[in-house]
Computed example of a mutant assay.
Amino acid sequence: MHAHSHGHRAKRVRWRFATPAAFAVAGALFVVSATNSEGTDLRPGRVNDMPSLVRSEKSQYEDLREKASDLNGDVEALSARIDDDQVRKVRGRATRLQGPAGFTEVHGNALTVTLSDSPEELREGTDDIRRLVVHQQDIQAVVNAMWDAGAEGVMIQGQRVISTTGIKCAGNSVELQGIPYPQPYVITAVGDTSAMQARIDSDYGIGLYRSDAANPAIQIGWDIDVESSVTIPAYDGLRGLEYAEPLT
């Protein structure tokens, strides 16, 4: 009886010290997340040229990613010190989900789609350039078709895409993970290239885009290639979610 009580108290002591530490690190993660939200908000007029804007946003993003990596390391270290079966089970489950979540690299045959704006002379000759430039929905349509065809991993402009990746228009560029990128937009997916090609061919929205690409008066850029031996890196950016349940 005495030994049982002593073991129970020891377990409570471990949790008493580990839990506040874990909450402290979690609080720091929320601070980094809030900072990221402020730091990646594009405000008109802040930077006048695209190269400077990209360098500025990328520098801020890299700083935040480094801080997040350090904090994630602290969380892992604290979790490893907790001697509890339930914690070990949760950590094992998280490890198994790293691949589907995009936190491990994938390698294999790939399909690459490149989207670009119409030639400059066509864009300068009209007041309505909506059909002459690439929009976020064009990129999203291609990415969604790739996922729908069973892609193992997708990247845009060399950056791994995961479920929380945001794609939005930012002036004359497209913003990905808080960083603006100019065209052309290169989208690569590892997986069954025949299935992805078929899914892209059957997509109505992509079909309209490709019709504009074939129209001499529009000529918006479209190119698709099959590649072999492509590696898509693991996602190593900031993580917006603290907790999530996998879809079944």
Rank of each mutant, 00 (worst) to 15 (best):
A26K: 09
A26I: 07
G27Q: 14
G27W: 14
L29A: 08
V31Y: 00
V31Q: 00
V32T: 13
S33D: 06
N36R: 13
S37D: 04
E38G: 14
E38C: 07
E38I: 05
E38V: 09
G39W: 04
T40R: 12
D41E: 15
L42S: 06
L42G: 03
R43E: 14
R46M: 10
V47E: 04
N48I: 05
N48Q: 13
D49Q: 08
D49I: 07
D49T: 12
S52H: 02
L53F: 06
S56Q: 08
S56N: 06
S59E: 02
Y61N: 13
E62T: 11
S69F: 10
S69A: 15
D70H: 15
L71C: 07
G73H: 12
E76P: 00
S79G: 05
S79A: 15
R81P: 02
R81Y: 01
D83R: 12
D84V: 03
Q86T: 14
R88Q: 10
R88A: 07
G92K: 05
G92V: 03
R93A: 05
T95D: 13
L97M: 10
Q98S: 03
P100Y: 03
P100G: 04
A101P: 05
A101Q: 11
F103Y: 08
H107N: 12
H107D: 10
N109I: 02
N109K: 15
L111H: 13
L111S: 10
T114W: 03
D117Q: 09
S118V: 01
P119I: 11
P119T: 11
P119G: 07
E120A: 14
T126I: 01
T126E: 04
D127G: 06
D127W: 06
D127M: 07
R130K: 07
V134Y: 00
H135D: 11
Q136F: 04
Q136Y: 07
D138N: 15
A141I: 10
V142R: 09
V142F: 08
V142P: 07
M146K: 01
D148Q: 11
